[in-house]
Amino acid sequence: MMFTRTSATALPLAAALAFSVAPASAADFDLSLTNDSVKGQVNFFDSRSDLQLGAGYTYHEGRRHLVNADFHAQGRTALGNLPTTAGIGFRGLVWDQSQADGGAVGLGGFATINLPTVPGLSFTGSAHYAPSILSFGDSDDLTNIEARVNYRVIRNAEIFAGYRYINTDLENVRGDINLDEGVLVGMKIFF
């Protein structure tokens, strides 16, 4: 697919619209940076809810735009004796750059593990995978993995560091693209 002016402005516009209405009903907002990208993510419900809905926008150096929408069933559980919030569901991701665009709906989930012996410290991991049947445009499949170490600095804010990897194989071409990859740092604000 070829890059069009309409699609280049539509993705950032859709993300801006989602973020402009989000604070009225959001549970948290996080902002993360890698060496080549910046991502904003809003989640609409807190960890006590049975569902989690989220939306995010990533700008990657080189005019690459990624927009994600998340839908997960979530609940509280324990991993060993460690309190854990886990979710299973879907992450839809659409990407656009100068010569190609595509997207996918990945199946997967997330977990946040708290360490009671170190108040404020937690670990979060998420993984979503979309095979060819759930991919469209120039994407033939999509893998999205993220791992973080979080520290709650104050009651309604935490800082984190971790690693993000988003990769897609290209349809009708040998090869793949790392849509976003690298060590990340960021902060999360709870409402």
Rank of each mutant, 00 (worst) to 15 (best):
G62D: 07
D50S: 15
A15I: 04
D101C: 10
T9Y: 11
Q41E: 14
D30L: 10
V42Y: 05
G175F: 10
G182H: 09
A14F: 06
Y165P: 13
G80K: 08
V173P: 04
V42I: 07
N35G: 15
T124Y: 14
L142E: 08
V118S: 07
A111S: 11
T168D: 11
V153N: 05
F90N: 02
Y59S: 02
L170Q: 09
V67Q: 01
I159Y: 10
Q41M: 12
N156H: 14
G56D: 13
I189K: 11
S139T: 01
S139A: 15
R76E: 12
D169G: 15
P131W: 02
D36T: 15
A15W: 06
I113Q: 06
G87P: 03
V105D: 03
G54H: 04
A24K: 02
A78H: 14
A27I: 00
A8Y: 13
T84R: 09
A130F: 02
L115Y: 12
R174A: 14
A86P: 01
R155C: 00
Y59K: 13
G92T: 13
F45K: 08
M1S: 12
L184Y: 01
V173T: 14
T168R: 09
R64G: 01
G80R: 10
N150Q: 11
W95C: 01
I113W: 09
A15T: 06
S25L: 03
A130V: 03
I177Q: 08
F45Q: 13
N172I: 03
N43T: 05
F29P: 01
G62T: 02
E171L: 15
F160Q: 03
S20M: 08
G103K: 08
G182N: 07
N81Y: 11
N167E: 15
K188N: 02
A24F: 01
G62E: 05
I159A: 13
R64M: 09
Q74V: 02
F136C: 04
G137H: 05
A22R: 01
G80M: 05
L184E: 13
L31H: 12
F44L: 12
K39N: 11
G137C: 03
L184C: 09
Y151R: 12
F123M: 10
V183N: 08
L51Q: 07
N35T: 13
W95K: 04
L170K: 12
F191K: 08
Y151N: 02
G108P: 10
F191E: 00
Q52C: 00
L170C: 07
A86N: 06
T9M: 13
L82H: 12
A78S: 14
F44V: 01
G120D: 02
E61Y: 14
D36Y: 07
D180C: 10
A100I: 06
T34D: 02
R63Y: 12
F190T: 00
S20T: 09
A73V: 11
G182I: 03
S98A: 15
T9S: 13
P83R: 15
